[in-house]
Simulated assay, not measured.
Amino acid sequence: MVIALDFDGTIVEHKYPAIGEEIPFATETIRMLIAERHKVILWSVREGKLLDEAVNWCRKRGIEFYAVNRDYPEETMTNNNHFSRKLKADLFIDDRNLGGLPDWGMIYQMVHNNMTWNDVIRNARPSINSYEAPKRKKKWGIF
């Protein structure tokens, strides 16, 4: 799977342009996803020196991204006439998701087990899924 990861607020706490503290289990989980042969792309608003700092921060923690702010490592505007900052990924992990960022343990379980949010909700509340609406009594009458 190709997974695009945001940096600020997702891997580290928001302190932009500085680098915040690591969000618990983020780097460990990312290393596990890479070990499972997922192509993990760093997808960040950071550019230039700020982007280099983020990449180096991750590298010091054992994370080597498949690509950074592009679909594949060799992609440039000159060798891809359809170059776009909009990535072609199977999954985007970002703290700005609708509903916010799940904890990294949940993120790992969802990716590893190929689960959707519906699967997570269904597993978390099995009694809701088995709920049946009460049967309505038939009303016989003249209309």
Rank of each mutant, 00 (worst) to 15 (best):
I3S: 05
N79T: 03
T76I: 12
E21S: 10
H38K: 08
R31S: 07
P73S: 04
A54P: 07
N80E: 05
D103Q: 11
A67P: 08
K138N: 13
I3P: 04
K137W: 03
S84Q: 02
L42N: 06
F25G: 02
R122E: 05
L5W: 04
D103T: 14
K39C: 09
S84H: 08
G99Q: 02
I128E: 05
Y16Q: 07
S127C: 04
I30R: 01
E74H: 00
L91E: 03
K86L: 11
M115P: 03
K49V: 13
R46G: 11
E132P: 00
P24H: 12
P24F: 05
W117P: 02
P24A: 08
A133R: 15
T29G: 02
I19D: 09
N80Q: 07
M1S: 13
F83R: 13
S84K: 10
H14S: 10
D52M: 10
W43H: 14
I128A: 13
I30N: 01
R31Q: 15
W43I: 00
S130G: 06
F143W: 05
D95W: 00
L50V: 09
D52N: 15
W117Q: 13
W140P: 00
R59C: 04
I34K: 14
I23N: 00
M32W: 11
E22R: 00
D95G: 11
V12P: 09
M106R: 10
K139F: 11
L5K: 01
K137L: 08
M106E: 15
N97P: 00
W57M: 04
N97L: 12
M1H: 13
V45N: 09
N97F: 13
A54E: 10
E13T: 10
L5D: 06
H38V: 10
I121M: 14
M115N: 04
N113W: 11
T29S: 09
V120K: 07
E21P: 04
I30T: 09
G100L: 12
Y108A: 10
N123F: 10
E53D: 15
N69C: 04
M32V: 13
K135A: 12
F83Y: 14
E64F: 06
I3T: 02
K49N: 13
T10Q: 03
S127E: 15
N118M: 13
D90Y: 01
T29A: 06
A18P: 00
F83K: 08
G99N: 02
A18G: 11
F7C: 03
D71F: 03
H14T: 09
H14V: 08
I41A: 09
K15C: 06
A35M: 08
V2G: 01
E74N: 03
R70G: 06
P24E: 12
V120S: 08
I19W: 03
K139M: 11
G48M: 14
E75A: 02
I11N: 01
V68K: 04
E47A: 15
H82P: 00
L101K: 07
L33M: 14
L51T: 07
R122N: 09
S84P: 02
D90R: 04
